[in-house]
């Protein structure tokens, strides 16, 4: 499968690149990755429709890993405008599968997270007004509206915290620290990459709608967020044991 990946120089990029080694992948980002990720790379600004159109020509799928978290204008031009450009390109080029990534509060924002348990991706989005959350939620909404009018499937993968079991620098946030009891929504980078690979190949005729949301986390006992849908629909099976995070030292 020919796949365009945007935002490939970010945290998820190396894990996505590794998981897709059997595919013909064009990695893109506004900045060059610090290491060779094993696929072709070109610079691309996802907020430019022309660039997205050019890069996505001939592709079978687009994986959007682009993100801006804290800067006002780029948060909108990338998180919202980027989705508009990607979906416009998908329509123009007949691309029928888009994988969109985002933070958990694209959907399960403070009105949920602060109050409830058993949260899944199938609840109405309530992002709150944090810039990062709301802009990603707007981008998600752009994708959803496009799927209402075009035969394109958008699979939304939401993440919260990552742990890098193999490459995290000592002392870094992503290092596995036993007993550190993080937020109840964690996944290893490798498992995240694998979830995205599964999203590329899942039979879309088995999806309930053209716009589906999956919470990608390992099996956690907290009961706050649920990965049941990812396991049931995608066949996601988290492999990395990160239970040391919530076990007493």
């Amino acid at each position: 499968m020919k796949v365009l990946v945007t935002g490939a120089a970010g945290y998820l990029g190396p894990f996505v690149a590794m998981a897709l080694k059997q595919h013909d992948v064009l990695l893109t980002d506004i900045k060059t990755p610090s290491a060779d990720l094993g696929h072709r790379f070109q610079v691309l600004d996802v907020s430019s429709l022309d660039q997205v159109l050019a890069a996505s020509k001939g592709m079978d799928a687009i994986i959007n890993c682009s993100v801006v978290r804290e800067r006002d204008k780029p948060a909108f031009t990338v998180n919202v405008g980027g989705c508009w450009n990607i979906m416009t390109a998908a329509v123009r080029h007949g691309i029928r599968r888009v994988l969109n990534t985002g933070p958990h509060f694209t959907v399960t924002g403070p009105p949920y997270e602060g109050f409830d348990f058993g949260l899944t991706g199938d609840i109405p989005p309530q992002s709150g007004t944090l810039l990062y959350a709301l802009t990603k939620s707007l981008g998600h909404e752009v994708c959803r509206v496009f799927t209402e009018h075009h035969d394109i499937h958008v699979l939304n993968f939401l993440f919260y915290n990552f742990r890098d079991l193999r490459g995290a620098a000592p002392g870094s946030f992503n290092q596995l620290k036993p007993g550190s009891n993080p937020v109840p929504f964690v996944v290893s980078g490798e498992d995240a990459g694998e979830a995205i690979r599964l999203g590329l190949t899942v039979d879309t005729s088995k999806l309930a709608s053209r716009c589906e949301v999956f919470l990608i986390l390992t099996d956690m006992p907290h009961g706050k967020f649920s990965n049941e849908k990812a396991k049931r629909v995608l066949g996601f099976k988290p492999k990395d044991d990160i239970s040391a995070l919530w076990k007493k030292a």
């Binding site: 006002d72 204008k73 909108f76 031009t77 919202v80 405008g81 007004t129 810039l131 709301l134 802009t135 707007l138």
Partner: peptide
């Protein structure tokens, strides 16, 4: 952008 970022 005007109606999203401007409104925000």
């Amino acid at each position: 952008e005007w109606l999203t970022r401007g409104t925000y």
